[in-house]
Nucleic acid binder design. Sequence first.
DNA 1: CGGAACGTTGAGTTCGGTCAATGCATGTGG
DNA 2: CCACATGCATTGACCGAACTCAACGTTCCG
Lengths: 229, 229
Amino acid sequence: MPIAKFEEIRSLPLFSGTRDESFRALVRGAYVQNFPPHTELAVEGEPADFLHIIVSGSIELFSQWQGRETSMSFLGANDTFILAATIKDRPYLMSARTLEKSRVILIPSEDIREVFENDAEFAKAIVIELATCYRQAIKSAKNIKLRASPERVANYLLKLRCKNGGADCFALPFEKRRIAEFLGMTPENLSRSFAMLKSKGVSVNGQEVHVEDIDTLTEFAHPNPLIDS
Amino acid sequence: MPIAKFEEIRSLPLFSGTRDESFRALVRGAYVQNFPPHTELAVEGEPADFLHIIVSGSIELFSQWQGRETSMSFLGANDTFILAATIKDRPYLMSARTLEKSRVILIPSEDIREVFENDAEFAKAIVIELATCYRQAIKSAKNIKLRASPERVANYLLKLRCKNGGADCFALPFEKRRIAEFLGMTPENLSRSFAMLKSKGVSVNGQEVHVEDIDTLTEFAHPNPLIDS
DNA sequence: CGGAACGTTGAGTTCGGTCAATGCATGTGG
DNA sequence: CCACATGCATTGACCGAACTCAACGTTCCG
C-alpha cells in the first residue's frame, strides 16, 4: 500500500508525533474506502477488526435494543471510531452508518495495538483521543439526565451557533429526526420544542435556524462548559 | 514517603507492569488519606490536581446543574477517578463523595503525566483503564436512552444478582435514593418499579432482595452484554 | 403525475415527576 | 427507658412532560 495515499491523515493529531517507521507499519495493512450514504460500516456486537478514521463525510454512531434505536453521536472529518473496542480487543458497543458520501481509512486493530506498544508518542496520542471521547460521553450523559428536552434543544442550538462562528443564522447539520434521536426525544417532540423556543427568540424554517434574541435563549438554556464544552 | 505504604496498590492492574523506578516516581509525591462518610473529595469544575485511587470503601460520582443532581457511578476498592481529567489536564466533569468510610491514595497529576511519557507499560495500563471507563459510560448512556425505568431496575437487579455469585437473595449495596438517581429516576418511582416487579417474581424488603423467579425476571429485563456487561 | 419520506400538528394516553401524608428505623437527650 | 426529632421509604393523588397514533402538507424523485 503506497504511503502517499495516506498523506491526508499523516498530519492528524493522532499521528502527528508518530515516528515515520511506526506510521509505515500502521498504513501497511490499511486501506481507504469510499462509502455511499446510509451504509452500515459497523454493527454493534461484532469484533473490532479495524480502527476507522473519517477523511471526509459524516457518520452516525447509534445503538439498538429491543427494536428501539438511539443516536449516540455524529462524527465528521478527522474523527475516529471505535478506538476503545480496538484497544481492548472487544466487540463494538455501537453501530456506525454514513449519513452522506464518506471517505474512511481502515487500519487493522492488531497493527494499532502493536504500534501502540512501541511508539510512546503514538500511545500518548491514543490516550488523549480516548480521554476526549470519554469526557464527551460523560457530558452527553449529564445532558440527558439533568436537562428536560427543550433545554437540550436550546443548548444544542447554542452549540451549533458557536460552531458557525457565532452567526445568528445557520443550518441544521442533519435531518431533524436524527437530531431528535441524538437529543433523546421523538421527532414530534423536537418540533414542539422548536415551536416553544419561538418565545425565546428562535425561529426554525426547514433546515434554517435564526437566533433573534441570543440573550433570552441563553438565559433559558443555561449553557455550562462542563456539559456543552 | 515510604514506598511500603503503597504496597497495597503495587499489584493493581494499573501498576502491575510498571517498572520499580516508575512506581517510586509515582508514589514519591503521593499520599494516603482516610475520609469519613459523606465527604466531598472532588468538585466538578475544579482543576484535576490528583489522580485518586480507592483502597477501600465506596465513592459516588455525581453531577449537578441548575439545582438538579444525578449519580453518574459508584466506585469501590481498586477503582480510580478521575483519570481522564488528569491526562488531559482539564477540570473534573463530576464531583465525588464518600458513601462510607474510605481510604484513598492521591497521586499528583503531573507525576502521572510524566511517568506516562517514560514507561510504556504504565501507558498501556492507563489506556486500558480509560478504554474501560469509556465503554462503561457508553453502556450507561444506552441503558438510559433505550430502556424505560422498570427495565433499568430489572437489569440492575440482575447485575447485582450476578455480582453476588448468582444467589437469589442479596442486599442492595446503597441507599435506594442513590440507586434511583443512578438509574435516572426518583425514589418514588423506584418504589413503584419494585412493586411492579413483584409480578416478575422479585420481592424487596428494606435492603434485601429476593429473586424468586429468575426466568420471568430475565424475560422481562432482556439483559444484553452490550449494555450490562 | 404519483409515490415516498419527512416534518408538523392535534388528540389521546402513558409514563414519570411533584407534593403531601404516613410509616418506619435510627439516634439523641432528658 | 421514653419522648422526640430526623431522615428514608412508601403510598396515593395529582399534574405535566413526553410518547403514540393519525392526519395532513411539503418536498423531492422517479
